[in-house]
Design a binder for these strands. Structure first.
Lengths: 400, 400
DNA sequence: CCTATTAAGTCAATTCGCTTGACTTAATTA
DNA sequence: TAATTAAGTCAAGCGAATTGACTTAATAGG
C-alpha cells in the first residue's frame, strides 16, 4: 500500500517486552530502595510473588542481584532481602572538553572503578581519537585486572561533549568546530567494539545526579550546569529529555532580553568562560582550577564582582526554569571549584518569586549538586547503564 | 520490611499491558496514516501478520475500526484497508473561562458532534457547576439522539481552565480564586458519572493541535497560547508534559528581565488582558470578539501599537522556547480573532536567531494554529480520548 | 493464454511469561 | 503449645504473540 511515504507508527510489543520491563522495574526498585525482599518487590511492582521470584532468580543467575542474610521481623517467615551487585555491570564514560579528555569506568551503582585523563588537541580530532582510544584501552585493562568477566559485563560507552550539536559550522574555536564535524561516534564504536551514545555535558551532569546525586529518584528535576558554557539537563517524567534534535536545554544561547539581535546570550555573562574573560585568564592555563578555588575562598573582589553579576542572571534563569518546567527541584552543578559554586549559590538567594514557592514543598527549590570535575564523565558512563537497566517506554518496544 | 517509608517503584506489567499497548499502537497508526491494511500495520508495528489480524478483529468487533473495499494494487492478493470509526468513541470537553463556559462532544477523530455555551458567575462556583452540569446534560442528550449506544462509548470528561493550579490564594478576581479552591473535579465526577481530567487551557490547546491540528503526528512541539493570559502547551516525546505539579508551561508568570522584583511578567505585556487594558475595554463586554476582529482588519493604530510591543516579547518567547526545548515546531494559537492572530504572527517576523534555524528543517519554526474559540473545549475533550486510546508508557503498567 | 511470481491473509500448533490457588516453612503472640 | 501471620514455593493454567505451512488472488512475462 503506502510504498511512497513511510507509514508512521510506534512499534508493538510482546512477552519479551513485558519481561524486559519487569526486570528493569526490579532493578530500579532495588536501586532506589536499597534492599528489598521478594514480597516487598511484589507489593511495590504489583506483580505476583511468583513472577517476582522467577525474575529475581534470573537476575541472581545473571549476577545482577544477590541475597543478603534472612531477617526476622515480627510474625511470619523471615524475609530474604536482595540488593544490586555493583560489579554486575560496567560502563565507560568519556568526557571530551576543550583541551582535555577524561575517561572513567563505573559500575552498576555508579561508583567509579577506574579513571584516566589526558590533554586533547582542540582542532585535530583524528589525533585526539587516538589519544582517547588509548585511555579507553587503559581503563579497560585496569577493569579487567580488577574483575574477571568484566568485559562481558561492559554495557557501553557514553560520550559527553559540549553542545549544541548539528548546527552550521562555527568559527569560535572554543566551540570545537572540528570535533563537531568529525564522525566521532562511528570511530569510537569501531575502535572499541562497544555501543556508543552521545549527550551534551549538561545532560551528562543530570544523568550523574540522577544515578548517584541529588536527583536520585526524583522524576522532575532540572540540572543547571555551569561549565565553560552553561546549559541545563532536563529530567522530565523520570527520563532525560533531549528535544527534537538532541539540543534541549542549551540555554547558553538564550538571549537575555527581547531587545533584539544586540542583546547578550546568557553564556556571555554566566559561564566560566565569562569568568575567565572577566579575570583575564587563559582557559587552557595549568592550575586554573586551584587558582579559582583559592580566589573564591579568599573572597577576591574581582571574583565577587563576577559572582554578583552572574548570580543575577542565574537567579532569573532559575525563575524561568521553574516557570516553564514546574520541576520538583533545580540542581546547580558546575565544574568550578566547590567554593566558587557555593558563592554563586549564596549570591542567587533570595530566589525570585515563582510558581515554585508553593506551600507544601518537599525538596528545596535550589540545591547544590556535585562539583566534582569528574561528574560529567560519570554521567556519560551512567547513560549506557540507564539505557540498559532503567525502565523506559522504549525498552518495551520491539525495535530501536 | 519497609513499613515506615513507602517503597518507590514503577509498576510491572503482563500480557494485558502488552495487548493494551498493541491495540493503542494500531489505533494511533490508523489515526496518523488514514487507512492501512493488516499487512501494512504488521510492517509498521513490527508485529506478525497474525497478531495484527487478531487485534484488528477485536477492534472491529468493538466498533473502533471498519474495513473498506479491497484494493487491487500490483501483484498479490488485494488488500483490505481499515480505518477508524469516528463514532467508535466520544468524549466531552469542558472549558471554564472567566465569564463563560463551553461544552463540546467530540468523536474518536476529534470532530465536534455537539456544543453548548453559557455565562458563568466568576465567584460562585457552586452555582456555576449547576449551569455546567445542565450544559453537559444537554449535549449528552443531543449525542444520544444522534448515535444509539453512544453513552456506552463515552470515555470521559476533560476540563480545561486557566492555570496555574494549587498556588496560594490570589486576590486577582480574574484568576478565579473561588474556582481554584472549589472541589470541581469531584463535583463533576459525581454529577456526571464520568472520569474527569484537568488541564490548563494552553495544554488543552496543545492537545487539540495534536489530535486535529498542526501538531498532528509531531512528537516535539510547543503550543504558544494567547488567551486572556498566556501559556505554553508542551508536547514532548509525543506526550503532553505537565511538570511536577501540573503547572508546566505557565509562562505568563515569567518575568521579562533579570532585574529583580520590579520587572514585568510576560502576561502583562503579551496577553489579551494586556490588550483590553491598552484599549480600555472591559473583558466581560459583549461583542468584544467582533470588535477586536474589526479593529484588527482595519489595522487600527492602537491595536498596531499593542501588536508591535507584544510581538517583540513573543518573538523573544519563541527564541527562549526554541533554545530550551529544541522543538520541531512552535505553534501560535489564540482565542483572539484570526485577523489579530495573523497580525501578531507577521509582527513576530523575522524571528530571532536560535538553534532552531538549522540547515535541514522540515517544519516551519513558527506556524499559526487554530484560532477557533472552541479549540480549548475540543482539546479538553481530546484529553480523555488520548488517555483512552493513545500509546503511552502508563497504559502498559498495571495500575494508575 | 498459461504459468511463475508476488503479496495478503488464515490456520493450527507452539512458546513463553505471568497468574492462580493450594501448600510449606518459620517466625511471633497469646 | 496452639493460633496467627507472613514469606516464599509448586504445579497447573492462561493468554497473547509467534511460527511455519497453507490458501487466495492478483499481475508480469513468455
Amino acid at each position: 500500500m503506502h510504498d511512497i511515504s513511510p507509514i508512521r507508527a510506534k512499534s508493538g510489543t510482546n512477552q519479551e517486552g513485558t519481561s524486559a520491563h519487569n526486570r528493569r522495574v526490579m532493578i530500579e526498585a532495588l536501586r532506589l530502595n536499597g534492599a528489598l525482599s521478594r514480597a516487598d518487590l511484589a507489593r511495590a511492582t504489583q506483580l505476583t510473588k511468583q513472577a517476582v521470584s522467577n525474575i529475581i532468580e534470573d537476575l541472581e543467575r545473571d549476577g545482577l542481584v544477590v541475597a543478603l542474610d534472612a531477617v526476622r521481623k515480627g510474625r511470619g517467615q523471615p524475609f530474604t532481602p536482595y540488593r544490586l551487585v555493583p560489579e554486575g555491570a560496567f560502563a565507560i564514560g568519556l568526557q571530551i572538553d576543550r583541551h582535555l579528555t577524561r575517561v572513567v569506568v563505573v559500575d552498576l551503582v555508579g561508583k567509579v572503578i577506574a579513571r584516566a585523563e589526558a590533554g586533547l588537541p582542540l582542532d585535530e580530532p583524528s589525533a585526539g581519537v587516538k589519544i582517547i582510544l588509548g585511555l579507553v584501552d587503559r581503563v579497560r585493562r585496569e577493569l579487567a585486572s580488577l574483575f574477571a568477566q568484566s568485559e562481558r559485563r561492559l554495557v557501553g560507552l557514553g560520550v559527553a561533549m559540549p553542545g549544541p550539536f548539528g548546527l552550521k559550522e562555527s568559527d569560535d574555536k572554543w566551540m570545537m568546530p572540528a570535533w563537531q564535524q568529525f564522525p566521532l561516534l562511528e570511530t569510537l564504536a569501531a575502535g572499541t567494539g562497544l555501543n556508543v551514545g552521545l549527550q551534551n555535558d549538561a545532560a551528562a551532569c543530570a544523568t550523574a545526579e540522577r544515578i548517584v546525586g541529588a536527583a536520585h529518584g526524583v522524576d522532575h528535576a532540572i540540572c543547571l550546569y555551569i561549565g565553560y558554557g552553561i546549559a541545563a539537563g532536563l529530567i522530565l517524567n523520570g527520563e532525560l529529555y533531549n528535544g527534537g534534535n538532541g539540543n534541549a536545554g542549551e540555554i547558553g544561547r538564550a538571549l537575555l532580553s527581547p531587545a533584539g539581535p544586540g542583546s547578550t546570550p546568557l553564556e556571555h555573562r554566566a559561564s566560566l568562560a565569562s569568568l575567565y574573560q572577566h579575570l583575564g585568564l587563559d582557559p587552557a592555563e595549568r592550575g586554573l582550577y586551584e587558582t579559582l578555588g583559592a580566589l573564591a575562598l579568599q573572597g577576591d573582589p574581582r571574583i565577587m564582582g563576577w559572582v554578583e553579576r552572574a548570580a543575577s542572571d542565574l537567579r532569573w534563569s532559575v525563575h524561568l526554569i521553574e516557570t516553564i518546567f514546574d520541576p520538583q527541584t533545580v540542581i546547580l552543578t558546575s565544574t568550578a571549584p566547590e567554593a566558587l559554586a557555593r558563592l554563586l549559590l549564596q549570591a542567587m538567594h533570595p530566589l525570585l518569586p515563582s510558581i515554585a514557592d508553593r506551600p507544601a514543598r518537599r525538596l528545596p527549590r535550589l540545591q547544590l549538586g556535585t562539583t566534582d570535575p569528574w561528574a560529567i564523565a560519570v554521567g556519560a558512563a551512567a547513560e549506557p547503564i540507564s539505557r540498559a537497566f532503567d525502565p523506559r517506554f522504549s525498552a518495551i518496544l520491539k525495535a530501536g
